[in-house]
Design a protein around this nucleic acid. Structure first.
Lengths: 244, 244
DNA sequence: AGCCTAAGGTCTGAGTTCATACCAATTTAA
DNA sequence: TTAAATTGGTATGAACTCAGACCTTAGGCT
């Protein structure tokens, strides 16, 4: 039995060990956090030493990443006590840029992200609904939802939407699920910047958000999961359509 | 609005940029693949150059990892044409070692893995059921299932079980899901080595496997997902109980 | 036998990353 | 006004990682 084993598993299981260059990974992660609105325009990033600690990276490397972000115009830095690094990136409006021009590999990755999302985000919603939420956490959820519904411009709506989904993931209290949702939202954000989104879809999306929030607050994991599945399905169908 | 944002998201979202050095990651990944039975006893690993390419690591680094695995007795290496690195690790039998002595942080991580598993494995099963499987793939699934049911010793049963779950993930064809299941199976394997499993549970588990396989082959995503959820729930309940 | 080939084994110089100091600027508070 | 505290800026040497070239071993073929 041992030697006759089929060879399909190793191929599927082994994956690149990491994105090389710690500094690129920092740029990626901080840049995504900023673009998603985890750190909104005008907010201050944690001090370098703290960030370096959090990211398990030396301060030297973190500073290189910061320099790159500064170079790219995402942040500005002031020295001295009370100084720090503040976000200067204004949320980008999804441009009508053609969805063509996307390399095949990236397109495949995007489609995979949509499949993955349909698994992890409903899972996070169900888990959140299953927990007994404190008043503070219920408040956070409602606040995040209100910000999505209340956003006037397309750009700030996009960030509020990301924050909404990340907030639900955070409510699940599962580090693995939070990471999964964060990464998938990063990819989603990238897709949405390349694809114009129409107004009616936003309204539709907001109604679905409301359903998810109700289910979570009511403590109904199944309803929360199904509602989030519908939401992911609809978004995915739209994006898949526009991608060809 | 911008400055008044709650501070809970950054804390949840930012994660270590990478676990460790490249060489440790290689040891970790190859070691897990071997322990899970992706490379069973007696099988030959791919040539170093190929592995290095696959893991996105220089051959020098990969070789350091190989040396560590050799040192640890997991593999043996022979030079020359027809040589290579073969697995020498005999599947370990879950020992009755006390489940105490597990540090708090690890215990929390284990519990998180169980939550995560309940999301990703049923998701993978549903996705697999939803695809039109080729004859080869249906065969792989049945083969993997037969090996679990047919395993005589506890140790080889454990590896066959891992391969069964990884096979389903591979059928889903989603790189992200495959990675998720691989990592969660690695953690699960670690848990099971520290916790004795009783015979009746294995029989119960095999019946659930059969249900999952039927649902996937029948092309019923919902049934597949639910069946896998039950399976995960039962395993999780057992482990949580034994963990205290 | 003698060559070819597919593997592992070795070496080297350049580029990254790290940990740990120490310096400089600026705000806050005594 | 002065001292302390907080924050970014700089420097250095060690360790890790990389890519690529080259050497050694051992099977298979002519």
């Amino acid at each position: 039995m041992t030697a006759s084993r089929a060879q399909h598993l190793p191929e599927a299981v082994l994956r690149p060990v990491r994105g090389h260059h710690a500094f690129e990974a920092c740029v990626e992660q901080l840049g995504t956090a900023i673009r998603l609105g985890v750190y909104p325009l005008g907010s201050t990033l944690p001090p370098e030493r703290e960030l370096a600690l959090r990211l398990h990276v030396s301060r030297a490397t973190l500073r290189e990443a910061m320099a790159a972000l500064r170079e790219a115009g995402l942040v500005q830095t002031r020295r001295g006590r009370g100084g720090g690094t503040v976000v200067t990136l204004k949320p980008r409006t999804p441009s009508g840029r053609a969805a063509a021009r996307v390399p095949q590999a990236k397109r495949a990755d995007w489609l995979d992200a949509l499949e993955y999302r349909r698994v992890v985000e409903p899972g996070a919603a169900a888990l959140a609904a299953q927990l007994e939420l404190t008043a503070v956490r219920r408040e956070r959820l409602e606040q995040a939802h209100a910000e999505v519904a209340g956003a006037d411009k397309a750009a700030s709506h996009r960030q509020a939407d990301s924050r909404f989904h990340l907030t639900i993931a955070a409510l699940s209290e599962s580090p693995r699920l939070i990471e999964a949702v964060t990464s998938v939202q990063g990819t989603l954000h990238e897709m949405l910047l390349a694809i114009p989104v129409l107004e009616p879809n936003i309204a539709h999306s907001d109604r679905q958000h409301a359903t998810v929030v109700r289910a979570i607050l009511a403590g109904s994991p199944d309803r929360a999961r199904r509602a989030m599945e519908h939401h992911c399905d609809d978004t995915a169908a739209l994006l898949r359509g526009l991608l060809g």
